[in-house]
């Protein structure tokens, strides 16, 4: 038995939906990395020189700021995917 065929069952509209989804996830994960592992760890030394209210900016990001950003990321994913679902439904009924 040779290599099984590559199956492609999604139609154009479904593919459009999936690609949009992947793009959205990638964008949100880039922010996730830059804020969390970037701002909290990799750039901690330079950001430690930046004052932020009573603490330094990197300390705030590492202990609180990143968590607030994480909430926003998950929230915007849910909102944007609801919108994408609606757009897809409209596309389908055209």
């Amino acid at each position: 038995m040779g290599e099984p065929e590559r199956v492609q069952t999604l139609d154009d509209k479904q593919n459009w939906y999936w690609k949009k989804n992947i793009k959205l996830i990638s964008l949100l994960l880039v922010i996730w990395f830059l804020v969390g592992l970037g701002g909290g760890v990799l750039f901690a030394a330079p950001l430690n020189e930046v004052p932020f209210f009573g603490v330094t900016l990197s300390f705030w990001i590492a202990q609180q700021g990143a968590i607030l950003v994480f909430i926003l990321l998950i929230l915007s994913y849910a909102i944007r995917m609801d919108k994408l679902d609606r757009e897809y439904a409209e596309k389908k009924h055209q």
Binding site: I25, L28, L29, W32, G36, L37, G40, V41, A62, Q63, Q64, A66, I67, F70, L73, I74, Y77
Partner: peptide
């Protein structure tokens, strides 16, 4: 201590999105 603060919440982003 950020390892726990960010680690346990940041992973949630991966779970929710991926």
């Amino acid at each position: 201590g950020t390892i726990y603060l960010m680690g346990w919440t940041g992973g949630y982003v991966l779970l929710a999105l991926l």
